[in-house]
Each structure stands twice: as structure tokens, then as C-alpha cells.
Design a protein around this nucleic acid. Structure first.
Lengths: 190, 190
DNA sequence: AGAATATACGGAGGCATCCTCCGTTTTCAA
DNA sequence: TTGAAAACGGAGGATGCCTCCGTATATTCT
């Protein structure tokens, strides 16, 4: 057994981590998956080395930023599952996602590129909370016999992001994405 | 009126263009949307300048490679529309796409990043042929009353690519993608 | 065939980004 | 207060992007 005696994390490190996440949210949100990491460091007011120490890969930075958004979605799902009928709850939750995504298109693009199996592994805790929340939505529907078997929460999530991401930004983006998702939801019916 | 008197295109230029497309198919297929263009030029055995003369932007190169794949899909759709029942034809066509994509995941990633409205404009001829073929599939279904109104060929295409692209590569990739697409197809029923 | 010219070629060069490495600085705890 | 652990910053080497232009070659004309 390894004795785990640790120092308190240093205050400056924590502050810088925070600054970096803030900057990344801004820069990556605007610039998309290929935005300059040096720009992120500049904006955060720290050295590039500091950025790489905290987030050794571009992917880890993305994931860290994104994990905050996930928290939001969990809460929303939690609310809907006890408020609405299953299919409608799912529909509403997908719509809520679309709203969130609409203002973070860049981030979303980043995520699609970045969602490797490895990284999902590393983020199991948080993303499994989202999945669990979605699964509760689905379960309720399955129990009531309103939703077909064989569709996982992951299926739902990935389809959602896929559709949001593939659609071209533009005046009709929202409308189109919602329409496609509704068709998918209809397909979920038993 | 501008008199259009043109020389015959030079043989070496055509050959190099061919070499570049061949190399790009390989390099971009493996490396994805951020693969090095200098690597493409190297593999083609031409200078980087030659690459940029033929394809001034990364996007144009991608589109040129991709347009060949489109030809393939048009033929397939053509065949299916007269062979199978509408909904099944659509299902089969989507499956055919999945098969194609499975070996070109990198390219697909590239395309998703690259499908700007501008470029689609420039490629109207070819891609509209695909869309037309798909539209015939849909039309047949609508006329027979088997498929709901309000779903365009573009909807179908983009959903297809979205789903293929978002799914993680892995042993179950094909199975999962097909399952999701089938759900979508079921949603198309009237 | 040979000259003239339009066309295409290659790669050097300037700039940006990536990521690593390590000397310096700051924080924490004793 | 002080020393070690932790974190910082940014220089630097590698690579990629794209442009520019001197050189080479294909085509056309006579």
C-alpha cells in the first residue's frame, strides 16, 4: 500500500489552472479545435510551459473545459426526468443541448475531434454522471413501454453531438438541427 | 465578351494533379484533417509549390479527393432506387455509405471540418448529383406514402456523415453506426 | 525543326505553432 | 526562518503553412 501523504496543492498553481481554463473557454470557443495554445497561454497571462504542465495535451485542456459544460447538462436532465413524459423529456433535453451548443460551436467541433476512448476513460466520473442522467430518462421511457429497447445513453449523446456538429452554421442551423433530432426521437418510439 | 481561346492543358500539370490526388487520398485518409500538406507533396514527389498551385487551400484539395467518392455513391443510389422498396433502398444506401466510410475515416473527419457553404457552392455539380439521387430515393418513398414529408436529401446526407463521424472507431463501430442509422430510418416512416 | 511564349515546377524563406527542457522563482511546512 | 518541493516562464529546435520568383518544360507557330 502506498502511503498517500500529500502537500496541499499550491495556491498559484490552482489560480493559474483557473486562468487557463477561463482563457481556453474563450479562445477555443472562438477559434475551434485548432486554435493556438500559445494564444491561450498569452490570454491567461502565463507562460506556455505552465499551460503544458497543467494540460499536457490539447485534448486534456479541451476535456477540462468541456467537463464544466457537462455539469450543466446533468442538472437539466435531472429536472426533466421528474417533470415530463419520457419521450418529451428526452426531446427537451436534446433541445437544451442544442441551445447550449449554439453558443459554443467551436468547442463542440473541438470535442468531436477529441473524444478518444482514452480520454473518455479519464473522464468517466463526470461523463458517466451525464450518461446516468440520460439513462434515467431512457429507463423511464422503457419501463412505461414508450421507448424501444437497445438504445443506450451513449447512442443518444453521440447522435446529438454528431447532428449538431455536422450541420453548417447559419441562420437555419437551430431549426434544422431540431428537426433532425425530432425525427430521431420519433424513431425511438416503441 | 471575352474570347475564350485556350491552349490544351499541359501534360505534366495533369499528371502532377493526379499524383497529388493519389497522395492526398492516402495521407489525408490516414492522418485526418490536420495531416501535413508537405507530406502530401513529398509523397506525390512534387514540390510544395506545385501542390499549392493546384489546390490553393487545404479545403480544395479535400474536396477534390472527396468528389471521387461521391461518384461511387451516385451509382449505388441509382441502382437501389429501381431495385428495392423505398425505405429499404434508403437503408441499404446508408449502409453502403457506412462501408465506404469505414475505410476512409480520416477523410470523413476532414470533410466534416471542411464542408463550408462556400465549398459546397463550388461543388454543386457533383454533390447535387448525389443529392438528386438521394432525392429520388426519398421521392419514391413519399409518393408511395411510406416516408414522411419534410425530410430533404441534405438532411439524410448530413445525418449520415454526422453519425459516422461522431462514433468512436473500434470493434463495434460498424454495428453501432448501423443501429443508429436504422433508428433514424425508422423515424422516417410515415 | 527551331524559336517564342505560355505554363508549370520546385523549394527557399519568413512566419507561426508545437512541445520540451531546465534555470529561476515561489510556496509550504517544519 | 529556511530549505526542499512545486511551479513558473520562455528560449529553442522541429515542423508546418503559404508565398514568391527564378528556372525548366510543354505547346504552338512559322
Amino acid at each position: 500500500m502506498a502511503e498517500v501523504r500529500k502537500r496541499k496543492p499550491r495556491a498559484d498553481a490552482q489560480k493559474n489552472r483557473e486562468l487557463l481554463l477561463e482563457a481556453a473557454k474563450e479562445i477555443l470557443g472562438r477559434g475551434g479545435p485548432n486554435a493556438s495554445l500559445e494564444a491561450v497561454a498569452r490570454r491567461a497571462g502565463v507562460g506556455i510551459g505552465t499551460l503544458y504542465r497543467h494540460f499536457p495535451t490539447r485534448e486534456e485542456l479541451f476535456m477540462a473545459v468541456f467537463s464544466r459544460e457537462l455539469d450543466q447538462l446533468i442538472v437539466t436532465a435531472e429536472d426533466l426526468v421528474e417533470r415530463d413524459a419520457p419521450l418529451e423529456a428526452i426531446r427537451s433535453w436534446l433541445h437544451a443541448n442544442v441551445d447550449l451548443v449554439e453558443t459554443k460551436r467551436g468547442m463542440l467541433g473541438a470535442m468531436s475531434l477529441v473524444m478518444t476512448e482514452d480520454l473518455k476513460q479519464g473522464y468517466t466520473e463526470r461523463s458517466s454522471l451525464v450518461l446516468a442522467a440520460v439513462d434515467r430518462l431512457l429507463d423511464k421511457g422503457r419501463n412505461v413501454g414508450e421507448i424501444r429497447e437497445g438504445v443506450s445513453a451513449e447512442d443518444l449523446m453521440q447522435t446529438l453531438y454528431a447532428v449538431c456538429y455536422a450541420r453548417q452554421p447559419g441562420p437555419d442551423w437551430r431549426e434544422n438541427v431540431l428537426r433532425i433530432l425530432d425525427i430521431f426521437v420519433d424513431g425511438l418510439k416503441k
